[in-house]
């Protein structure tokens, strides 16, 4: 099973922490985890996990979208990190291009409009900027990510 962590602009500190936390959960369930993001998002991940215990593969965001569009790559689960309208655009794009289930990981101060715009994706959402604890609680509420792919 393959899982994508698609990250947007890392201006909110919780993004990197939550990405690593979800990656750990997915690794325990034997997912192959690939993180895609812009240079800043990927740099934060690699600096936080220098020995790649949690994130073993990374790729450029545009390249990932291109490979999904060209059907050269696909995932069973696609986590899209959303704290702004841009994230909703990326979620809609991944939803169109991938056969996998999409999970909207929503955070920030104004989460309600983002939840409404996330459609029928699985939603993990909490008001969180610096402290990932509330998001972690929602993530822990999912007992098996693999079960969602069946």
């Amino acid at each position: 099973m393959k899982a994508l962590l698609m990250m947007g602009c890392p201006e909110l500190p919780v993004q990197t922490a939550v990405a690593l936390y979800i990656a750990n959960k997915l690794n325990i369930e034997s997912f192959e985890v690939i993180a895609a993001g812009n240079k800043a998002a990927i740099s934060l991940l690699l600096n936080s996990d220098p020995e790649k215990h949690y994130i073993r593969k990374v790729m450029d965001l545009d390249r990932c979208i291109g490979q999904l569009a060209e059907k050269k790559l696909d995932f069973d689960l696609c986590f899209v990190f959303i704290h702004s309208d841009s994230g909703i655009s990326y979620l809609a794009t991944v939803k169109s291009l991938s056969k996998g289930k999409t999970v909207a990981v929503i955070f920030g101060k104004e989460i309600e409009p983002l939840i409404e715009a996330s459609g029928d994706s699985i939603i993990i959402a909490a008001k969180a900027v610096h402290n990932p604890t509330s998001l972690r609680a929602h993530i822990d509420g999912v007992k098996s990510w693999a079960a969602l792919t069946r």
Partner: peptide
Amino acid sequence: VEAGFKIFDNYLIGVP
């Protein structure tokens, strides 16, 4: 067009 449509060597991002 659909999301991921290729134009000017870019894949379009957005809500289709």
